[in-house]
Design a protein around this nucleic acid. Structure first.
Lengths: 332, 332
DNA sequence: GACGTGAATCGAAACGATTCGATTCAGAGA
DNA sequence: TCTCTGAATCGAATCGTTTCGATTCACGTC
C-alpha cells in the first residue's frame, strides 16, 4: 500500500506537508502543491480511509436509512437513493446503506462506531420509532419526510398537503364539483406515514375551501383490487368526475379500469396523479401530475446534512413547493 | 467517546484482552469474557470503525456497485440491494453504495482507500468497462450477471438461457407451435447486457430443438410502444399463440393490450413471464412465470464474496437453476 | 522440588493519517 | 544591521484498535 510517507519521500517534503497540500487546510506554495500532486498521481496514492477517520474524526460517509416496506414504491425509492448517493459524492462523501430491519441497533451501531458522520432517514412515519433514537444519537441527521413531533429535527419533504390542494384546485378550476382521492395502500395509512396523511389532509381541506364534494379511498396496487375499488367508487359516488391518484403502483390499473368501465379520460373522468414526472408522462394518455421531485429532494437533504456537519444553521423544516404539469388527462 | 481502554479499565483487564474477548481470536476464560461483555454493555462501547480498519486491515464493508441505466427495472434492483445489505449484515459487514456514474474512478477510490474489503457488481454487460478495472484491483469481487470474458472472475446469476428454454418447453408441452419473446428495451440489447442475450439465446435454441416457430422483439416499457409492438407482432405473425415476456415494466401493458385486441389469456394467447414471483402472482390473470430470485441471488453473491475474503476456494461461475411456476396464464 | 506445558493475560509496537506547535526564512521597516 | 512579521514547512504527538511476542500461573510429571 502507498502511504502518505511514500508520497512525502517522493516529493521531497514532510508527510504533514502532503496532508496540507491535499486537504488545503493550511497554505502551501503552489510549487510544492504541484510537486505533491504529481507524486500522488505517480504513485497512485489514495489516503487510507480508516487512518483518516481515526485522525480527523470524520469518516466522510453518510448513512442512508432506507426502509423497504409494504406498499412502498420502489422506482421512486430508487431515484432517491441514486440522487442521494450522487449528491453525497459531490460533497466528497460516500453512502452507507442501513436497511430498516436493522432497527434502532443499526442506527446506534453505525453512529457509535464513527462509521458515519451523519444520517439520512427516508420514509418517516408520523410516530416513527427511529426518531427518538436519532435524538439520542450525537450525530446530525436529516429526515426525508416528517414525523408528528419534529421538534429538534431537520426535515425535508415535498409539501404534500399543498400538492393535494393543488390537484383539487386544478380540478375545481376546470369545473369539477365532485372529486375523489385514490390513495396509498391501507397499510401505509395504518402506519401513519406522514406524506399520505398530509396529502389527504390538503386534498380534503382544499375541497372544503372550494366547495367541492370529495371522498377518499386507500387502494392496493394489484389490478383486481383497483378494479373493485374504482368500480365501487363510481357506484357509490356516481357524480365523481375528477380523480387524484396518489399511488404510483396502482396508476396503470386505474387508467385501464376507467377505460374498461367505459369512462373516457379526460372527457368523462379527469385524472391528476401525484408521482414522478417521467412516469406520468409515459402513461396513456399522458397524465396531468404534481411531480414528486425525488432528485431534488435527495440533493436538498444532502445539502442540509452537509450544512449541519459544518455546524451551519439549518432550517428545521423545508417543504418543497409542488409543481403541477398539465397533460392530456385533464382539459379545459 | 468510549474506547477500548475505558472498557478494559472498567473490567479490570488489559485492552488487548478486551479485544480478544470481543473478536474471539484467542481463547479467553469465560469468566473474563463475561466481565468484559458486561462492561461493554454498561459503557455502551462500540469499537471505532476507523481504528479497527487501520489496525486490522479490514473495513468490514462491501461495495455494492449499482448502475441505474435506461430500461432497468427498479423494483427488481431494489430487491437485490436489500437482499445484499441484509446478507452482508449477517456476515458482520456493511454495504457502501457506489453508483455507476462514478465509473472506474469510483471503484479505484473505494478499493484503494481500503474503504471496502470487496466489491459486488450488479447488472454486468457482455463487454463491461468495469471488468478490466476489477481485474486490476487487488480486492476480491463478485459479479451478479456475467460478461463475455469471465476468466479469473467470480460470477453468479440466474441461468437465463435455461429460463428462456424452460418457457419454450412449457409452451411446447402445451401444444403451442409458434411462440414469441417479448424482450427488454432495445437499449438493453444494444448495451450487450448478458442476461437479455442469454435469455434470447436459450429461447431460440429451445424453439429450434422443439421444432417450434419463434420470433423475438425488444420492447420499450411505455404503453403506446407496447401496443404497437404487440399489434405489429400479431399482424406479422398471426399464428403466434404463446408469449414469453422478459420485461417487468412492460408486463401490465402486454396483458392489457392483448385484452384490448380481443385476445383472451390463456385461451387465445398463453403468456409466460420471466420476473419476480410476487409480480407475476399479482397480475390479472396471475401469470405463469420463471422467477428471478433476487433475494437468493443477493445472498449467494454475498456468501461467495465472504468465501473469497476468507481465501476459501470459490467456483468461478454459479448459475442458479430457474424455477417455473404454473399459474392461470397458461393452461393444459 | 525442578521442570515442562498450555491456557490466560499483559504490554507495546504497529497501522496511516491529521493537527498543533515550533522552526525556518525572506522581506519589510527602523 | 537588527528586529519583526507572516508564509511555508517540519516534527512529533495523537487517534483507538489489533496483534505479536512475552509473561504469569496452575498443574501434572519425572
Amino acid at each position: 500500500m502507498v502511504t502518505i510517507a511514500d508520497v512525502a519521500r517522493h516529493a521531497g517534503v514532510a508527510p504533514s506537508t502532503v496532508s496540507y497540500a491535499l486537504t488545503g487546510r493550511r497554505s502551501i506554495s503552489s510549487a510544492t502543491k504541484a510537486r505533491v500532486e504529481a507524486s500522488v498521481r505517480a504513485l497512485g496514492y489514495h489516503p487510507h480511509a480508516g487512518a483518516r477517520s481515526l485522525a480527523s474524526n470524520r469518516a466522510n460517509v453518510l448513512a442512508l436509512v432506507l426502509p423497504v416496506r409494504e406498499g412502498m414504491n420502489m422506482p421512486v425509492m430508487m431515484q432517491f437513493v441514486v440522487a442521494v448517493a450522487n449528491a453525497a459524492r459531490r460533497h466528497e462523501h460516500d453512502v452507507l446503506l442501513v436497511t430498516a430491519d436493522q432497527g434502532a441497533a443499526g442506527l446506534r451501531r453505525v453512529a457509535g462506531s464513527a462509521q458515519v458522520d451523519g444520517l439520512l432517514v427516508m420514509d418517516v412515519e408520523m410516530h416513527d420509532e427511529r426518531v427518538p433514537v436519532l435524538r439520542e444519537l450525537d450525530r446530525p441527521s436529516v429526515l426525508i419526510g416528517f414525523p408528528a413531533d419534529a421538534a429538534g429535527l431537520t426535515c425535508v419533504d415535498l409539501d404534500f398537503a399543498e400538492a393535494g390542494a393543488r390537484c383539487v384546485d386544478h380540478l375545481a378550476d376546470l369545473g369539477h364539483s365532485y372529486v375523489a382521492l385514490v390513495g396509498a395502500p391501507r397499510a401505509v395509512y395504518q402506519r401513519d406515514t406522514g406524506f399520505a396523511h398530509r396529502t389527504m389532509a390538503g386534498f380534503s381541506a382544499a375541497a372544503m375551501r372550494r366547495g367541492v364534494a370529495s371522498t377518499t379511498l386507500p387502494t392496493e396496487p394489484d389490478h383486481e383490487s383497483v378494479r373493485q375499488a374504482i368500480r365501487g367508487l363510481l357506484d357509490r359516488h356516481s357524480a365523481v368526475t375528477g380523480l387524484v391518484v396518489h399511488n404510483e403502483a396502482a396508476l396503470p390499473s386505474v387508467v385501464e379500469v376507467l377505460r374498461e368501465l367505459g369512462r373516457k379520460v379526460p372527457e368523462d373522468v379527469a385524472v391528476v396523479a401525484i408521482c414522478p414526472d417521467d412516469l406520468a408522462g409515459r402513461m396513456n394518455p399522458p397524465l396531468t401530475s404534481v411531480a414528486v421531485p425525488a432528485e431534488q429532494l435527495g440533493h436538498h437533504a444532502v445539502a442540509l446534512l452537509m450544512a449541519k456537519l459544518d455546524r451551519a444553521p439549518t432550517p428545521p423544516l423545508t417543504l418543497l413547493p409542488p409543481r403541477l404539469t398539465e397533460r392530456a388527462s385533464t382539459t379545459r
